[in-house]
Simulated scan of single mutants.
Amino acid sequence: MNALDYFNTRLEATISPMDYLRCAEANPEEYFLMDVRNGPEHVRSVTIKDAAVIPQQELQERLHEIPKDKEIIVYCWDVWCNTAAKAAAFLLERGYKVKELTGGISAWKEMNFPVSDFSAKIHPSDRCGC
């Protein structure tokens, strides 16, 4: 694969936070944003605003919640996390149209884009106390 093929393939499989925000504002009915991060709820309490929360480890059981007629945008923690890539591959194998949000929630928060914080809704006994 030459450099041009690599970059074209990368652009085909990913979307930047800025591009996603612009596209979703223009055509919200075309996209389904999905937080696929695994881990305890208290560490996942901040999500991208209006994202569906379906952890990667629950995808098999929750496929019925994911629309086939929209482009699915998956995200995880950051550029170092491969959970979104695993989720994207799983969904692509099942016929979904999928892109990964580059940089995950870290890049989204760094750009001060809208988030939802559910930490107040988590019961104190659910916290690990770390």
Rank of each mutant, 00 (worst) to 15 (best):
F90V: 03
I72D: 03
L11F: 13
K109P: 09
D50E: 14
C81S: 13
A3D: 14
E58S: 09
V43E: 11
F90E: 04
D50H: 15
D35M: 04
I54L: 03
G104L: 11
C76Q: 02
I122A: 11
Y75W: 10
P55T: 07
R127F: 08
V74S: 08
R94P: 02
V79K: 07
T102Y: 01
H123V: 09
Q57M: 11
V36H: 05
C81H: 10
D69R: 02
I66C: 10
D50I: 10
I15S: 12
F7G: 13
A87G: 10
D78E: 11
V79L: 05
T102E: 05
A13N: 13
K70E: 09
S106T: 05
W108H: 15
I105G: 02
A51T: 08
V115P: 05
D35A: 06
V115G: 04
A85P: 06
I15N: 10
F7N: 15
S45I: 05
E12P: 01
N82E: 04
D69W: 00
T83M: 06
I72P: 06
C128R: 11
H42F: 15
I105E: 02
M34T: 07
V36A: 07
P55V: 11
W80N: 15
R62Y: 12
G95I: 00
F90H: 02
R94Y: 07
G95F: 02
G103M: 01
M18A: 12
D126S: 13
S119L: 10
I72G: 07
K97E: 07
G103W: 04
A26E: 14
A52Q: 11
E93P: 06
P67F: 02
A26K: 11
N112R: 12
I48G: 01
I73G: 11
D19K: 09
M1A: 15
H42K: 14
D5K: 13
F32I: 03
L4C: 14
I73T: 08
A51C: 10
V98T: 08
Y96N: 04
L92K: 15
L59P: 00
P124I: 03
P124K: 06
V98Y: 06
W80K: 15
P55N: 11
S116N: 09
K97I: 08
F118M: 01
G95N: 03
D117H: 15
V36E: 04
Q60R: 00
G95W: 02
K97Q: 12
A88D: 02
I105Q: 01
A88E: 04
